[in-house]
Amino acid sequence: MLDDRARMEAAKKEKVEQILAEFQLQEEDLKKVMRRMQKEMDRGLRLETHEEASVKMLPTYVRSTPEGSEVGDFLSLDLGGTNFRVMLVKVGEGEEGQWSVKTKHQMYSIPEDAMTGTAEMLFDYISECISDFLDKHQMKHKKLPLGFTFSFPVRHEDIDKGILLNWTKGFKASGAEGNNVVGLLRDAIKRRGDFEMDVVAMVNDTVATMISCYYEDHQCEVGMIVGTGCNACYMEEMQNVELVEGDEGRMCVNTEWGAFGDSGELDEFLLEYDRLVDESSANPGQQLYEKLIGGKYMGELVRLVLLRLVDENLLFHGEASEQLRTRGAFETRFVSQVESDTGDRKQIYNILSTLGLRPSTTDCDIVRRACESVSTRAAHMCSAGLAGVINRMRESRSEDVMRITVGVDGSVYKLHPSFKERFHASVRRLTPSCEITFIESEEGSGRGAALVSAVACKKACMLGQ
Rank of each mutant, 00 (worst) to 15 (best):
A456N: 15
T332L: 01
R403A: 12
I436C: 13
S263Y: 15
Q239L: 12
I189L: 14
S151Q: 02
F330T: 08
E216F: 14
N350W: 06
S441G: 12
G295D: 02
E322Q: 12
L45Y: 01
Q106K: 06
D160K: 00
V310C: 08
F150G: 02
F334Q: 14
P111E: 12
L430Y: 05
S433G: 10
N180F: 02
L58E: 01
R325E: 11
L2W: 11
Q347A: 11
R429E: 09
D198Y: 10
E28V: 09
M402G: 13
D124G: 06
D42K: 14
K459E: 15
D135F: 05
T354F: 09
R46V: 06
M37S: 01
L243N: 06
G464A: 12
I163N: 04
I351S: 11
D187H: 09
C461S: 14
E27T: 13
N166Q: 14
R250G: 15
N313A: 12
T65G: 14
G407P: 01
V89L: 15
G68N: 13
V389D: 04
N179D: 04
L45K: 04
A188E: 00
F148P: 01
D4H: 07
V33P: 04
V33Y: 01
E221W: 14
D365Q: 10
F74C: 06
I436V: 11
A232F: 01
R192Y: 00
Q323M: 04
S396D: 08
M107G: 14
T361E: 12
A208E: 01
E177F: 03
N283D: 05
D400H: 14
L20A: 11
R36C: 13
T149W: 04
D267M: 15
A232I: 01
M238S: 13
A114I: 05
N254R: 02
L144V: 05
A456L: 15
R422W: 12
M87S: 07
F148R: 03
E442Q: 11
R191I: 05
L352C: 06
V182H: 03
E17C: 11
T332W: 00
C364N: 10
E40T: 08
G249M: 10
Q106R: 07
V182Y: 04
D4K: 11
H156V: 04
G170T: 02
L184V: 01
Y214W: 15
D158F: 00
S418K: 15
T326V: 14
E322A: 11
S433L: 12
R155E: 01
A379K: 07
M210R: 06
L144A: 05
N179R: 14
H317G: 12
G147W: 01
R155T: 00
G444A: 11
D363I: 06
G285R: 15
L352T: 13
K15C: 09
E242Y: 09
L122H: 02
F148Q: 01
L463F: 12
M298Q: 13
K39E: 12
E272G: 14
N350H: 09
E242W: 06
S131H: 01
N350F: 15
L146Q: 00
E196L: 02
V154L: 06
R397S: 10
E96K: 05
